[in-house]
Structures are given as structure tokens and as C-alpha cells.
Computed example of a mutant assay.
Amino acid sequence: MIEIATSPATTTLVITGDLDLAERDQFPEIAARVVGLRRQLLVIDMCAVTFMDSTGAAFLISLADSGRKRGGATVLRGTSDRDLFVLEVCGALDLFRIDRAHRCTDEFPLQGSTS
């Protein structure tokens, strides 16, 4: 599940569960909504992501690339080491700012992280 919240300058996506091939049908609609909001900062909260494959990574990469083309930035928070590795293997980690100060709540413990 992906929820979208906005403020005057920021769009926040809160992702819960798997971000993978099985969820891809919702990606185009969500991407269109995020791009249509035209906020300079996109924050992607991944505290509750249980699994991400290359399809999920491609979705995040497309969001970050769209924002960058408009002069915006994309921040990942609550991202597990495993998910950062997937983005690194895709050669896309430099598209994102990583919020290393964020601490997930007990309700959504950071999955697979060693830091």
C-alpha cells in the first residue's frame, strides 16, 4: 500500500508491505499523481517496506528522475541496507538523498538494517 501526503513544499509517500512486481499495476497512477503535485521535495518513507525487487527499485528511480528533471530532490527515509543495496546495484543510489537521522517507530521497525 502506498499513501500520499502533501504539504506546501513536500510530497511524502508512505510505503507499506512489498514494493515489487506484484504491486506494479499501481505504480503509473501513483507516479502521475506525484508528478502532478509538482512539489520540490519528495520524501519516500520505507519504514514499513518488507521487500523490494528491481521493479520496485525502478519505480523509485523513475520518481527520483522525474523530480530531478524539475529541479527537485528525493529523500529516502527508513530504507533498509538491503533496499539501498538494490538501488546501488541498479546504479541509481546517487539519485537519492538518504535520511540517516530518521528512526522508524516501533510500529514499523526498519527491515533488514544493521544501522
Rank of each mutant, 00 (worst) to 15 (best):
R82G: 00
D83S: 13
D83Q: 13
L84R: 14
L84P: 00
L84A: 04
L84W: 00
L84E: 05
L84S: 01
F85E: 15
F85H: 15
F85Y: 11
V86W: 06
V86A: 08
V86T: 13
V86M: 10
V86D: 05
L87Q: 05
L87N: 03
E88T: 13
V89E: 09
V89Y: 01
C90E: 12
G91K: 12
A92C: 06
A92H: 10
A92Q: 03
D94H: 12
D94K: 09
D94C: 03
D94V: 05
D94P: 00
D94F: 05
D94N: 11
L95T: 12
L95N: 10
L95A: 08
L95M: 11
L95P: 08
L95S: 09
L95Y: 13
L95C: 07
L95G: 08
F96K: 07
F96V: 08
F96L: 02
R97F: 11
R97T: 10
R97Y: 14
I98K: 04
I98N: 05
D99L: 02
D99G: 00
D99T: 00
R100I: 01
R100A: 06
R100Y: 07
R100N: 07
R100W: 03
H102W: 14
H102T: 04
H102I: 03
H102D: 09
R103M: 09
R103G: 06
R103P: 03
R103Y: 02
R103V: 09
T105I: 01
T105C: 05
D106F: 08
E107R: 14
E107A: 13
F108P: 05
F108M: 12
F108S: 15
P109Q: 12
P109S: 10
P109M: 10
P109V: 09
P109H: 11
L110Q: 12
L110Y: 05
Q111M: 11
Q111V: 15
Q111N: 11
Q111I: 12
G112I: 01
G112R: 08
G112C: 02
G112S: 09
S113K: 08
S113C: 03
S113T: 13
S113D: 07
S113Q: 07
S113P: 07
